[in-house]
Nucleic acid binder design. Structure first.
Lengths: 184, 184, 184, 184
DNA sequence: TATGAATGAGGATTCATTCAT
DNA sequence: CATGAATGAATCCTCATTCAT
């Protein structure tokens, strides 16, 4: 049964994301990706110019969501409620494949830093701190704010670790995250 | 000036740790390590049987410290103060090259998982949760406890990110970590 | 503005010749040619059966001119004047894209030898010696005769090298070429 | 029978030069070179960092000879006799593997231009014109001077073409070359 | 007249590892 | 205590070519 038009490119992205997150960027070879799909390596190169290009494409959607969230927040006064809403929205973005991407990003520091799209995303991520905490806040508050988003990302690592279903863990992580924001 | 006896092995470990943490395990080749030291690749094989063996060796000291901490804690009743002391002692271990090792471990998830020593360390790390929080505590408390140690490790990623010297950041991180422990 | 009928084939030839001469046959990929033209690789295959076929087509016109020159010369007695006229006519052929083709041929020895059309042209070129110099002439005369045509081709390599416009260089090259013919 | 020490590197150079000259730089794969030697591709990489590095190494000796010749000539007044002697000495250098290298260089224009060592050699070659002819000489004289060295190189293409042994052809080529120098 | 999608063969290069000396 | 020389397996990537539409 032949692959449907436009299908292949999407399938490559799916398989790649899964493998990158599972085994890491370096350890995942294009051969492996193509074999899983029953295609030749060369086929991958028809759809993506380089291995890095696959990653770039993976980050793209997420990129957009995150940028939108950021600019939305920048337009508002930085009230405690704005901060809480920011965290809630971020938690929403993280659900689904955005979460897998974040897991990939956090677990593959060195590799991701070297990838243009990854480096960009890292910077973006760091710039969130500006929104979550005042520049002149105390050092512990600075750290807590940063830990807040980490807390959400961490729920991704705890799948199966804690005996509870994913949704519950995510909800709890959100609660923790909100609690880490500067109390005002 | 000739290398002193026993020196080389130690130098290999130092350079390897630095490179592994900076560039990742896969991206760091034995060639690079040996070139930095001005020795041949073959020389590395005199001191270590495989690349993985270098990592194993790197984890060894840390391993011991961590095991000691763990058994010490297991012998005591799990009071809030014991937990706080546990976190303080862990923070102490993390200082110096132990921190670099943790940074390596956290930023190289997939690679480290595949390494025997790395996998072991990960498990040990997870088992710390048993000490920091009761099994039947609320989900948010579970997460907070795990985040507590993360908080300490995170200070390693924030070098330079926040405008403050390392010691101050570490102290603040410890404060945050302690605050994340179950309140009673 | 859509491509006009018959246009494409000609454009492929032009771009191909230019790139082959500039970067060499092997280094020039069909992808590159098609991209320059804003068509797909597959489009090239509509117009030419293989990459080699493009070269063949490139040699064709030149081929005809050269064959005509050769048979014309064969019909005449081999006087000094005939030889001079031969060289003059060859110089005429060399002008324009015929020159670029010769440059391609001379600068891509190994590749061109393997191409049917190229090998043929090489042989033809060598057979010109029969016309320009007697078989029993002295070795230096043999060499000079061969150098004569080379002299004309060389003007193609000297573009810009000598501070003089192309026409003047060509005229001078012709003068040199004539001077290299056996004095009688 | 095992290869002798230092042997392999030299053998790689020999085989490479031969194949590069015969089939061209691009068409000659490292696999081919290594197979001829009964070694693995990886062995080549022990001796040379890249394919281009092999070429660089090939040009090195020749490089030195040619530079020496050039500086020697620069120290003298540019008399006709100096020019003749220059050509004679160049002819001497060309003998042996230097000739094969020149053949490689002239028959692989585009490829060689892209190689650092090749491009350098090309420039050097062009700068010889400064020695062989005055800057304000007539255009035909300019061309003749350049053709002079070409004449020597050409003897390399005529192996077998003319029915005469190599030495005789070389001698004749030298005679022709000398005759192309500005008469005073 | 073309394109979109794919392939098979091959390219240069890098890596961890081995072993005789 | 170390090197010099080499290997086998893998990597990313490029190319000419094909074919259904």
């Amino acid at each position: 049964m032949p692959r449907r038009r436009g299908d292949t490119r999407e399938q490559i992205r799916e398989v790649a994301l899964e493998l990158f997150a599972e085994q890491g960027y370096e350890k995942t070879s294009l051969r492996e990706i193509s074999e899983r799909l029953g295609v030749t390596k060369a086929a991958l190169y028809y759809h993506f110019k380089t291995k890095e290009d696959i990653v770039t494409s993976l980050f793209e959607d997420f990129h957009a969501d995150v940028d939108e969230l950021y600019s939305w927040a920048r337009e508002q006064p930085l009230t405690p409620e704005l901060r809480r809403e920011f965290v809630r929205r971020y938690a929403e973005i993280i659900k689904g494949s955005g979460g897998t991407l974040m897991r990939f990003m956090h677990e593959n520091g060195p590799a991701v830093r070297e990838l243009k799209a990854g480096g960009d995303m890292r910077k973006r991520f760091l710039s969130f701190a500006e929104i979550l905490v005042d520049k002149d806040a105390s050092l512990p508050d600075q750290i807590r704010a940063r830990l807040s988003l980490f807390s959400l990302n961490m729920s991704l690592f705890l799948k199966g670790e804690i005996g509870a279903d994913d949704e519950a863990v995510q909800a709890a992580a959100l609660e923790v995250a909100l609690g880490l924001l500067p109390s005002d």
